[in-house]
């Protein structure tokens, strides 16, 4: 488990992270979203020990990181802007990782490279962007680290590669209880992959929740009653949004779905449809409740 307490980081005069608190459960896929410049990458780099923090505590499995090599063996990182040594082939890169990570699985790395049809003796810097991403991912996955961090990893990657990468990550999670932490400014990217989400805004985690509970606690209905009706008729519900067009209203509700369903049926609706909510919609409505304009945040 990663526990971050009152983390603060300043770049010059600008406070990038301020008293940030966050908990990332072991075995979860934690999605970190936020607008460009919100501090997502900085947070990951501080957890990885790449950047020094100004204040606060970062604990991994109950131990404070602070340039701890043993602890860093448990962490792997795939940054947004990839770097490979000049003149290094894929094979060289795998050997580099295997020299530094005690649990690095060389055979697995080579087998993945083979599956992906990546040329092992070709210089990585001559690879396409997608191939480079695959290389970085193979190396990171093969470290068998407990925590793997992906910073905007799927940005600019074509859907086929993206799908494959996600599969590799999922396989790794099945193989070992690896915790994945991913950042993106694209909610749709994380929606079908993460089980936890944190929203970073103005240097702090504005909102943090499990996606499943978000989705089960919040739902959208389309309803039409025989009589004329308004939002007042839904006073007994926790209504996040009410929009009526003609005789049909679209309502976003938060609460126990089964209980709500029974009450709604008692109202003898002409139409009552339960519709799935996208993660983006969930966030939009949640943010509205908190008094933020979601589009300004992400």
């Amino acid at each position: 488990m990663i526990k971050i307490t009152n983390l603060t980081k300043t770049f010059g005069d600008k406070k990038v992270l301020e008293d940030l608190n966050c908990n990332i459960k072991t075995g979860s896929i934690y999605g970190l979203i936020g607008a460009n410049g919100a501090g997502k990458s900085t947070l990951l780099r501080i957890i990885m020990g790449i950047f020094n923090k100004d204040s606060g505590i970062v604990e991994i499995d109950g131990k404070i990181l602070e340039d701890n090599e043993e602890l860093k063996q448990k962490l792997a990182f795939v940054p947004d802007d990839l770097y490979f040594f000049k003149n290094y082939t894929l094979k060289d890169m795998i050997l580099f990782y295997s020299n530094l990570y005690k649990n690095f699985d060389k055979e697995y790395a080579f087998s993945l490279a083979e599956k992906l049809k990546l040329p092992q003796n070709q210089k990585v810097n001559t690879f396409s962007k997608g191939m480079k991403r695959q290389t970085a991912l193979i190396c990171a996955i093969s470290t068998n680290a407990d925590y793997i961090f992906f910073d905007e990893t799927f940005d600019g990657v074509d859907p086929v590669v993206r799908k494959f990468l996600k599969k590799v990550i999922a396989d790794q999670m099945q193989k070992k209880e690896t915790t994945i932490i991913m950042t993106s400014h694209n909610l749709r990217e994380l929606e079908d992959f993460c089980d936890n989400l944190g929203l970073l805004y103005k240097g702090g985690i504005l909102f943090e929740s499990e996606i499943d509970s978000l989705k089960t606690n919040m739902f959208k209905i389309q309803i039409s009653l025989k009589k004329d009706f308004s939002e007042k008729d839904f006073q007994n519900f926790n209504v996040l949004s009410f929009k009526k067009s003609g005789s049909v209203a679209t309502v976003i509700l938060k609460g126990d779905r089964e209980g709500y369903e029974k009450i709604l049926n008692d109202m003898n609706p002409v139409i009552l449809d339960f519709l799935p909510l996208t993660l983006e919609e969930i966030f939009i409505y949640e943010m509205e409740v908190l008094g933020y304009e979601f589009n300004e945040i992400v």
Partner: peptide
């Protein structure tokens, strides 16, 4: 370079 800082900095090596 920032990207090489990320790369080496993320390795299991202390400064």
């Amino acid at each position: 370079k920032k990207n090489s800082v990320d790369f080496i900095g993320s390795m299991p090596l202390s400064r």
